[in-house]
Amino acid sequence: MSERPRVVIVDDHHLFRAGVRAELGAEVEVVGDAGTVEAAVATIRERRPDVVLLDVHMPDGGGVEVIRRVSSDGEGPRFLALSVSDAAEDVIAVIRAGARGYVTKTISGAELAGAVRSVAGGDAVFSPRLAGFVLDAFAGEPHHASAPTAQELEIEQLTPREREVLRHIARGYMYKEVAQRLGISVKTVEAHVSAVLRKLQLSSRHELSRWAVERQLVTLDGPAAGA
């Protein structure tokens, strides 16, 4: 991308918005920021940014609500979730709503700018943590009560290659390093990651909510232990 991506920052903490704005600095063009869902929707409609940096947790519904309302407009910007939250369910919810990636707020300014450029270019951005969450969500063999259709199976499972790519990302490798280690091109790594993102967004509500429930209710004495 030759020109600088235009970015809107949505976060309910003023200090944090100012900090991100300063850190992104020259690499991207910050065209606006907002502290509430209402203001965010209005700002995004008015400024038409390429990328929205979106806080997962905000009053009045958080990032999910912003994506839902902006996406109903039709062609919208791309979203990158940015949060301190460790709660997997919340992060997965934002990804499923349509965000193209998730990075934690402790990310460095340069890395964040790189992530913004990737998202603007249509790629998915998986931080190690998100890769971990996704692996967790798709963990284990599918144990459907009823036999799933072939199409369902294809959507709801990761291929071994995709799993391997995610595992490397979770281990802290950059796309470039993953490509090198697996002997594939960076483009192929990006394709795998995008495929995973699509599967995450398409997979049936049932399967992921089962996962969420298990995460909440997992007890070490129960049968779900270590599963």
């Binding site: 190690p128 971990g132 692996l135 967790d136 963990a139 802290g172 997992v218 070490l220 232990a225 270590g226």
Partner: peptide
Amino acid sequence: PIEVVTVGDGR
């Protein structure tokens, strides 16, 4: 800083 990511858990 150490970034810890875990998948699954067990006793």
